[in-house]
Amino acid sequence: MTNRILPFITLVFLSTLFSIVIGDDGVAISEQYPLVVSTWPFKEAVRAAWRAVDGNHSAVDAVVEGCSACEELRCDGTVGPGGSPDENGETTIDALIMNGVTMEVGAVAAMRFVKDGIRAAKLVMQHTKHTLLVGEKASAFAIAMGLPGPDNLSSADSIRKWSTWKENHCQPNFWKDVVPSDSCGPYHAKARIDVKEGGCSTRYLMGVAEPRSSLVGPHNHDTISMAVIDKRGHVAVGTSTNGATYKIPGRVGDGPIAGSSAYAVTDSGACVATGDGDIMMRFLPCYQVVESMRLGMEPRLAAKDAISRIARKFPDFLGAVVAINKNGVHAGACHGWTFEYSVRSPATDDVEVFTVLP
């Protein structure tokens, strides 16, 4: 009797862990999917992505729907049009989408006059052999492909924010080692001096940069970064942001950089990130996370390892990553702030928000 029961119990246990059905096209579909994960408590964006993927849309299309919802809602004032003015008071858009099955990427950066960042990024992936288009040429491409524009991406809020900053002598800002440092410019490089070391002449800039923690925070330097695993286990990621508030015009952060703000490989998993993009893009933390998981590291350790690599060099940086393996297991790690991320899965009736302590 015991010999008959044990195999049955084992079968039930395994079927609970790996619940699989076969779709109409003969492809195995895991009932642990679909899965939507997003940086921050952007619940409406996650719900939009969930409606798409739960309705049998692809992971790529679900990412577009989720990020687009955040652009329309202007999540945290740092996604989509109408937020994060640069030094000239203008809002520009950065966005990225990546298909973890094909490894195709589409991205736009410093895009003017077009509101739909994530849709523009998808058009780059869909209709070109390129990965990244920038500036006004990205805008012209997006409009030629059918997106609305040209539009003014500023809003009453962004103009008011920019005016207040100008009245405060453009402080704080992202300049360093310039004169004058306490005004709105025009700026000039400080004088350089030569320091002899071992018979060699080394050039040093004078001055001390202001701590970046005074320039970067959840509400002035943020991104929606979203990962979706669809019902067939296919993975895609996407991002959208209007970048750092009061950035130097032309600045591009890590939002449209594959491997930094997001990365996906269907055979391994995905990663989404947010924070100080100028620092984080130097380390490609999401590529690091996905590669670590490919080598067998669990998501929690992969996320922590990627953040620790940055913190060792830049102990004042603010940032966070979420690792999601191919089985849908997820975990976050952060540095410098308390971070939250959102998840919707078949196990929940609505979006669940997870809090990660630094």
Rank of each mutant, 00 (worst) to 15 (best):
A323F: 05
A323P: 03
A323L: 04
A323E: 02
I324M: 04
I324A: 03
N325S: 00
N325V: 03
N325D: 14
N325K: 00
N325I: 02
N325C: 02
N325E: 03
K326H: 12
K326V: 11
N327P: 00
N327L: 01
N327A: 02
N327G: 04
G328S: 13
G328D: 11
V329G: 10
H330C: 12
H330M: 13
H330G: 06
H330L: 11
A331D: 05
A331L: 04
A331Y: 03
A331C: 05
A331I: 05
G332P: 12
G332H: 11
G332N: 12
A333S: 15
A333V: 09
H335P: 06
W337K: 07
W337A: 14
T338Q: 07
T338E: 08
F339W: 11
F339S: 13
Y341S: 05
Y341E: 05
Y341W: 08
Y341T: 02
S342W: 00
S342R: 02
S342T: 02
V343Q: 05
V343M: 08
V343P: 08
R344Q: 10
R344C: 03
R344I: 00
R344A: 00
S345F: 02
S345Y: 01
S345I: 07
S345P: 08
S345W: 04
S345T: 13
P346H: 12
P346F: 09
P346D: 12
P346V: 09
A347N: 14
A347V: 11
A347P: 06
A347D: 13
A347K: 14
A347G: 10
T348R: 15
T348V: 07
D349R: 15
D350Y: 11
V351F: 04
E352M: 06
E352A: 06
V353N: 09
V353C: 08
V353G: 07
F354W: 05
T355F: 00
T355S: 06
T355L: 03
T355D: 01
V356T: 08
V356S: 01
V356W: 01
L357S: 10
L357P: 00
P358S: 04
P358A: 06
P358M: 01
